[in-house]
Write a protein that binds this DNA or RNA. Structure first.
Length: 424
RNA sequence: GGAGAGAUGGCGGAGUGGUCGAUCGCGCUUGUCUUGAAAACAAGAAGCCUGCAAGGGCUCAGGGGUUCGAAUCCCCUUCUCUCCUCCA
């Protein structure tokens, strides 16, 4: 959601932003005419209500002064106004509802620094860390390694639920548990985040707040109570402060949360779906920040570094890319992805997406703060990023640390969590 | 699942049909005092929409109704608490 004032005062700027994101710029004109209509009705309704209020008030005073005849006269007059007020109110409500629906369709405006581009092929690499691991043998993909050590069971996952649902077994289950425990500890103890353990099921309002609804309902699993399984902890954690006014002294708020994530992956059939690359349920540690507007872009940079720090601690090669305008989706103003190198599949895998959402989500979720005590509340700026997603991290880890004899070395920092130095 | 009680401003908590958008306390802001702070005293401030402004409108969980007029009466929904039931 955007500032209405911005759309009214600088429609060209908004149009340009939508065009940069390959969105539908006619939204602006639709908004402008609907907004004018709404405001016309609001003024007219307000005038009628003011008249009716004035008469009602005078009746109270006349009764107090025992002028009953005059009061009766006023009552008759007020009665005749009722129908008109009701009709105007109904029209105003309808116009406002339409406006609200339209408003939710607007994408966020990309930051001026975001590179132009059509799709993922236009995303520039911002930086590389380390280099691609060299092997004296043909490195295997993680699904072969996992199979060899009986770490995941895709066939039984398909049996008990369906394709794309994974059973972790034995050391596989332990390794994935080790990874998220390590990451939560790291983000809270080393990087200064406060831990949250949220519900994995949320209501509709929460998903509207983060911007997943109304647009992306098909991507979500839904319950019979009109609840939804969360696609990321971003949703419950961002909505922690929905409809609240925070004090400036509380900011910045930095949360890290472990959660399961559930995605229907409705449009993703067939692409990069082998092994752990794209599954319907996965675990992730998510970072969410609530900050003052002026601090948002600095906080974005440091959040990327926080995501990277996990990969560095695990000794993995990765690159950071910046998403171009055509690939960044509707919600953010600027996004970095962190992609870890997986030598077995020979690809960089996205394990983190870190974005600044500005006031886009805080407007939808009504999350404000007082810049100073006594001042008018303003919208906080919200950022979130993965820190990081478990399955692809595990894939990269297995592929990077595989040995010629088929065993897998466990990185130093993970050993206390796994309880051993190697697998196999 | 059953029975009962409740939902009011940043927080706590009054208010049962007519200047109530709301007494009061805490917290907050400003001023006096002080080297500064604390304390004390005084003054001030709810949110949202609309308007250049003056102003106007809406909001006492949400929605609907009664009435000239609703925080207050009626109906529905949601949520919270207590007891019972059930359960990890």
């Amino acid at each position: 959601m955007l500032d209405r004032e911005l759309i009214r005062k600088q429609p060209d700027l908004v149009r340009q932003g939508i065009v940069r994101k390959k969105g539908d710029a006619s939204l602006v004109d639709q908004f402008l005419s609907l907004d004018a209509e709404f405001r016309r009705l609001a003024t007219e309704t307000g005038n009628a209500q003011a008249e009716s209020n004035a008469i009602a008030k005078s009746i109270g005073m006349l009764m107090g002064q025992k002028k009953f005849d005059e009061a009766e006269e006023a009552k008759a007059k007020a009665s005749s106004l009722k129908g008109r007020v009701a009709e105007l109110e109904a029209q105003e409500r309808e116009a406002e509802a339409k406006l609200r629906t339209l408003e939710l369709e607007f994408p966020n405006i990309p930051h001026e620094s975001v590179p132009e581009g059509a799709d993922e092929n236009d995303n520039p690499v911002v930086r590389l860390h380390g280099e691609q691991a060299k092997f004296e043998f043909e490195p295997k993909p993680h699904w072969d390694i996992a199979d060899q050590h009986k770490m995941i069971d895709l066939a039984r996952g398909a049996k008990i639920t369906g394709s794309g649902w994974v059973v972790y077994t034995g050391i596989g289950a332990k390794l994935q548990r080790a990874l998220f425990n390590f990451m939560v500890d790291f983000q809270t103890e080393q990087n200064g985040y406060d831990e949250i353990y949220p519900p994995f099921v949320v209501n509709r309002e929460s998903l509207i707040g983060t911007g997943n609804l109304p647009k992306f309902e098909d991507d979500l699993y839904k319950t019979q109570d009109d609840f939804f399984l969360i696609p990321t902890a971003e949703v419950p954690v961002t909505n922690l402060y929905r409809d609240e006014i925070l004090e400036a002294s509380q900011l910045p708020i930095r949360h890290a949360a472990f959660s399961g994530c559930f995605r229907r992956e409705a449009g993703a059939a067939g692409k990069d779906t082998r092994g752990l690359l794209r599954i319907h349920q996965f675990d992730k540690v998510e970072m969410v920040k609530f900050v003052e507007p002026a601090a948002a872009y600095d906080e974005l940079e440091s959040m990327v570094v926080d995501a990277e720090s996990i990969l560095q601690a695990l000794g993995l090669h990765y690159r950071v890319i910046e998403l171009c305008t055509g690939d960044m989706g509707p919600k953010a103003t600027k996004i970095y992805d962190v992609e870890v190198w997986a030598p077995g599949v020979g690809k960089y895998l996205e394990v983190s997406s870190v974005g600044n959402f500005g006031d886009y989500q805080s407007r939808r979720a009504n999350i404000r703060y007082r810049p100073e005590a006594g001042a008018k509340p303003e919208f906080v700026h919200i950022l979130n990023g993965s820190g990081v997603a478990v399955p692809r991290l595990m894939a990269a880890l297995l592929e990077t640390y595989q040995q010629a004899d088929g065993s897998v070395q466990i990185p130093e920092v993970l050993r206390p969590y796994v309880g051993r130095e190697k697998i196999g």
